[in-house]
Computed example of a mutant assay.
Amino acid sequence: MRLSADLLAFQTRIGHEFRKPDLLLRAVTHASIGSATRPDNQRQEFLGDRVLGLAMAEALLAADPSANEGQLAPRFNALVRKETCAEVARQVGLGDVLKLGRSEMLTGGRRKEALLGDAMEAVIAAVHQDAGFEVARAMVLRLWGDRVGRVEADARDAKTALQEWAQARAMPPPTYRETGRKGPDHQPIFTVQVVLASGENAEASAGSKRIAEQTAARDLLQRLEGGAGS
């Protein structure tokens, strides 16, 4: 089969030319448009998550031979979490080539954090299926770039970091509340607000409450720390 022009360009962005183009086509096909004759990327997501995990585990061990398990675990989690996968997906323009059903198109599926993260895992699996683990690992390390080297600063999740910021200033923990929800029941978009006792707050939207909370916490923390440094 021949790939469309946008998928050919996507191959260039990720640095891998597929010998079996159908693997890439499947990786960018969301369940909302999948069918018996058009398989979706859910099984590849499952595989890609494991390929990514092994690649990151090996990279972390190599980067810091003296680190113990307690130090490695949060670094690993920071590198493989959906938010990071979605960040890489945006970096390579994966959202632009996704094959989505009408409902997903209407609710901004190309920008959804969870959907992009899942699709990035599927692309990793597709490369693994097409050319083996070594090639897939090389692509992962190339796309993740200096994230492995600077992961110590990003290892704590944003909610934990914001709570520690508040505690260090004798403030109670931040509170989170859902302020909005839109989209169909099977694929909602949640809006969550985080508020500190001092009144500072931030709001974010995502395809899951957990991701929305993390994003809101990260945005607020960056604003607070930026203000502290100015």
Rank of each mutant, 00 (worst) to 15 (best):
77 N>D: 02
123 V>D: 01
155 A>D: 08
157 D>L: 13
114 A>K: 05
20 K>I: 04
182 K>Y: 12
14 I>S: 06
46 F>H: 09
176 Y>A: 09
20 K>A: 06
63 A>H: 06
54 L>G: 03
181 R>M: 04
61 L>Q: 15
61 L>I: 15
123 V>Q: 02
79 L>P: 00
189 I>M: 14
95 G>S: 00
163 Q>A: 13
74 P>Y: 00
77 N>V: 05
162 L>S: 12
204 A>C: 08
128 H>K: 09
188 P>I: 07
37 T>R: 15
65 P>F: 13
22 D>C: 07
221 L>M: 05
35 S>C: 12
222 Q>D: 11
163 Q>D: 11
131 A>I: 14
53 G>C: 02
191 T>C: 05
46 F>Y: 09
84 T>W: 07
229 G>V: 04
125 A>R: 00
150 R>V: 11
39 P>C: 06
197 A>M: 11
100 L>C: 07
193 Q>L: 14
221 L>K: 04
135 V>N: 04
137 R>Q: 15
57 A>T: 13
150 R>D: 11
107 T>P: 00
185 D>N: 02
99 K>C: 10
36 A>N: 14
146 D>S: 12
108 G>Y: 07
77 N>L: 05
58 E>N: 08
41 N>C: 13
22 D>L: 10
198 S>Y: 11
173 P>S: 10
67 A>T: 01
143 L>E: 09
201 N>Q: 13
83 E>H: 13
148 V>T: 12
35 S>T: 15
152 E>L: 04
163 Q>E: 12
102 R>D: 14
9 A>E: 15
199 G>C: 09
182 K>P: 05
182 K>Q: 15
154 D>S: 10
86 A>E: 09
45 E>W: 06
149 G>D: 00
31 A>G: 02
219 D>P: 04
6 D>S: 03
227 G>L: 06
191 T>V: 07
148 V>W: 03
28 V>N: 14
115 L>Q: 01
176 Y>W: 12
170 A>R: 14
57 A>S: 14
56 M>N: 05
96 D>P: 06
128 H>I: 08
117 G>F: 06
17 E>M: 10
102 R>I: 14
96 D>H: 14
142 R>N: 03
209 K>Y: 12
195 V>T: 11
78 A>W: 00
148 V>A: 03
68 N>R: 10
48 G>C: 01
70 G>N: 02
158 A>M: 10
229 G>A: 07
203 E>Y: 08
142 R>F: 00
124 I>G: 00
131 A>S: 15
190 F>C: 12
61 L>P: 14
99 K>W: 12
216 A>L: 03
163 Q>V: 11
137 R>T: 15
122 A>I: 01
5 A>G: 06
177 R>K: 09
213 E>W: 03
34 G>K: 02
160 T>C: 06
109 G>W: 01
170 A>Y: 12
171 M>E: 13
117 G>Q: 10
41 N>G: 11
133 F>Y: 02
96 D>W: 10
128 H>A: 08
